[in-house]
Write a protein that binds this DNA or RNA. Structure first.
Length: 665
DNA sequence: AAAAAAC
């Protein structure tokens, strides 16, 4: 028992003099070097110390400590158990740390006194949501202050969002809402939304809120800048606040002692560590003072601390797939209680080879079946492999297609300059010299280039830093933090930062090296001009980039941008000699049907990369029209497309059919 | 070819 009282290094004898909050303070990885001079965020000071206004019921910290819905044999959520302990004080002044203890075991939602975490410190009692007390320090940390723009979206022109077209299809699509309050999201959630200074739902949110609240599954083609994080967090949290925690299934009971298992009710998967960290930050905002306790887990960070974090309660879990699988293997997380599953940046996750892990998480563990959970998928594109995933993971879903935020909305001025590789550095210096103010994000293709370029810039006395996958997680977080807060307003980045990251005030994106996939280009420039602000995107183009020249031109046209003559010229060159460039980049059917509900638009979807049989065709070769090439493969549903093409077969990287082309590169 | 991601 003594053992349990000290689990995870927490001092649960909260009344003891030895319990200085600093003594064993611990800062989770994602919280480190954050918030400037804020007091360190600790994971386990005795509740009473942080929560003096609750002192009168000091014992309540007992339940709160592990507040999450793990390991309860309490069949009734929010029922009398917590009540007893909380109100009655029957568990004693020592805090009655019972949950999970050898004897206690039952633990529904005590509601957290997650004092130190500052989010989700409310409780669920008697079937009612009792928000925790306000905490000014935490509010500053979560919502920022007027003079710290790094935490807030200043100058958002939400009205501009209305320009973004949204197309919804599927059976019985609910009418979009136009305000957060009608029909109402939970009142407490609305308070938090207000504190975060979100005034009006973005187009994605207008649709996703009623869709999710109505219990429907969702497949949305949208980028992060469209407000999709709120798009899934708002309805999920609202429902959670209204309905309270759910009981841990009976068969999960009877776990004793130390091996505590978390039973989150919402799971959000995303591809990169920075992205999950960012989603987690949003989740903390909107679950502030609520009974819901968000957690985040990802690789590259100390797993012990993450274990302790989830031990103390985990209702909404944001995770990268690898680390989640690890935790499941260790028996520390069960998915049997999942009500909401969100796959964010699904196309990116598949690109990164996460499909096996994702399938394992969704289909190979104890996750409720498709029918018994609600599943939301977000993806920038809708290629065939994503359609397969949608077919397997979703039921009767509403398909949402959100227009591109960046490129089409003309918020971003896109410039393409012809720069030979050898001249790139000096052209970059010119740009940086003339472009003062705001944050500049520079994309390069390789990690080595990221290092050498940032070294170069630093040597030139520019306040630069870099982020890429070979830097430690610590360095990555630090770089991002310094960039966000303006200490290093120049960030050199690889693809790790291309998608999803929401950094306010990025005024200039420079594609020092253009990506080979135009979708990546779209994502990269989408780091600026966000939320209705304007931004500039400059790309260095030379013949090494002719692979995307066609699509780049199409994109610029679509966005009403100026098209430099040399681009057209190179496009003409390429269309003769260079055969075969066209079709490859989008094995899944790419933009041709990227934003289409393939259920409606027919087989074009499933065939995507399938060209297997018939794909070897001139339309692809010439590169005149990618679309043509893809839809050609696309119509191949019954043939090589679907069957042969599944996985990597068919035509991935080789759309023209087996052996028809040598390496695309 | 490169990048990302679990240890």
């Amino acid at each position: 028992m003594a053992d349990q009282l000290n689990m995870g290094g927490l001092n649960l004898n909260g009344d003891g003099p030895q319990s200085s909050p600093q003594a064993r303070s611990y800062i989770p990885p994602h919280m480190r070097s954050r918030g400037g001079g804020n007091a360190p965020v600790t994971d386990g000071p005795p509740a009473g110390l942080n929560n003096s206004n609750w002192a009168g019921q000091g014992q309540q910290f007992a339940g709160g400590r592990q507040g999450g819905n793990w390991n309860g044999d309490a069949p009734a959520p929010g029922g009398g158990y917590q009540n007893n302990r909380r109100g009655g004080g029957g568990w004693g002044g020592r805090g009655g740390y019972s949950g999970g203890g050898g004897g206690g075991g039952y633990e529904g939602h005590g509601g957290g006194n997650h004092a130190a975490r500052g989010s989700g410190d409310g409780q669920w009692r008697d079937g009612k949501h009792i928000p925790g007390p306000p905490n000014p320090r935490v509010e500053r940390e979560l919502f920022g202050t007027a003079d710290d723009p790094s935490k807030q979206h200043t100058g958002i022109n939400f009205e501009k969002y209305d320009d973004i077209p949204v197309e919804a299809s599927g059976r019985d699509v609910p009418e979009p809402v136009h305000q957060f309050t009608t029909p109402p999201l939970d009142e407490h959630l609305c308070r938090n939304i207000e504190m975060a200074r979100y005034k009006v739902p973005t187009p994605v949110q207008k649709y996703s809120i009623p869709i999710v609240m109505g219990g429907r599954d969702l497949m949305a083609c949208a980028q992060t800048g469209s407000g999709k994080t709120g798009g899934f967090l708002f309805p999920i949290l609202s429902q959670a606040f209204i309905h309270g925690p759910s009981a841990v299934p009976a068969n999960a009971a009877g776990q004793f002692g130390r091996q505590r298992k978390a039973y989150p009710t919402s799971l959000i998967l995303a591809p990169t560590r920075e992205l999950v960290s960012q989603i987690y930050d949003e989740a903390r905002k909107f679950s502030y003072r609520s009974w819901v306790r968000p957690c985040v887990v990802y690789g590259g960070a100390d797993i012990g601390s993450q274990l302790r974090q989830i031990e103390r309660g985990c209702d909404l879990l944001v995770a990268t797939p690898g680390r989640l699988v690890d935790l499941i293997e260790r028996g520390r997380i069960s998915l049997c209680n999942i009500k909401y599953l969100v796959l964010d940046e699904a196309d990116r996750m598949l690109d990164m080879g996460f499909e096996p892990q994702i399938r394992r998480i969704v289909e190979g563990e104890d996750m409720p079946s498709v029918a018994d959970r609600q599943t939301l998928m977000f993806s920038a594109t809708f290629p065939r492999d994503i359609q397969m995933l949608a077919r397997d993971f979703l039921k009767d879903y509403v398909f949402l297609s959100v227009g591109r935020v960046g490129s089409t909305s003309e918020n971003i001025t896109q410039k393409v300059e012809f720069v030979e590789d050898i001249d790139k550095r000096s052209v970059l210096l010119d740009i940086l010299h003339t472009h003062a103010g705001g944050l500049t994000l520079i994309f390069v293709e390789t990690k080595r280039m990221a290092d050498s370029l940032s070294d170069f810039l630093i040597n030139q006395s520019f306040p630069a830093t870099s982020i890429h996958g070979d830097r430690t997680q610590r360095e990555r977080e630090r770089a991002l933090e310094f960039f966000r807060n303006g200490r290093c307003p120049i960030l050199v980045a690889t693809a790790v930062a291309a998608r999803g990251l929401d950094i306010p005030n990025v005024t200039h994106v420079i594609n020092y090296d253009l990506p080979t996939d135009v979708d990546d280009y779209v994502h990269r420039i989408g780091r600026t001009g966000r939320a209705g602000n304007t931004g500039i995107a400059t790309a260095f183009f030379n013949r090494g980039n002719r692979g995307i020249v066609r699509e780049l031109i199409d994109l610029l046209k679509e966005a009403n941008q100026e098209i430099p003559p040399f681009l057209e010229a190179i496009a003409r060159e390429s269309s003769f000699g260079g055969g075969g460039r066209g079709g490859r980049s989008r094995p899944g059917g790419g933009r041709g049907n990227a934003n289409r509900d393939f259920r409606k638009f027919g087989g074009g979807g499933f065939g995507g990369s399938g060209g297997g049989g018939g794909g070897f065709s001139n339309p692809q070769q010439g590169g005149f029209s990618n679309y043509g090439g893809q839809s050609q493969g696309g119509s191949n549903y019954g043939g090589g497309g679907y069957g042969g093409g599944y996985g990597n077969g068919g035509g991935y990287g080789n759309p023209g059919g087996a052996g028809a082309q040598s390496s695309w590169w």
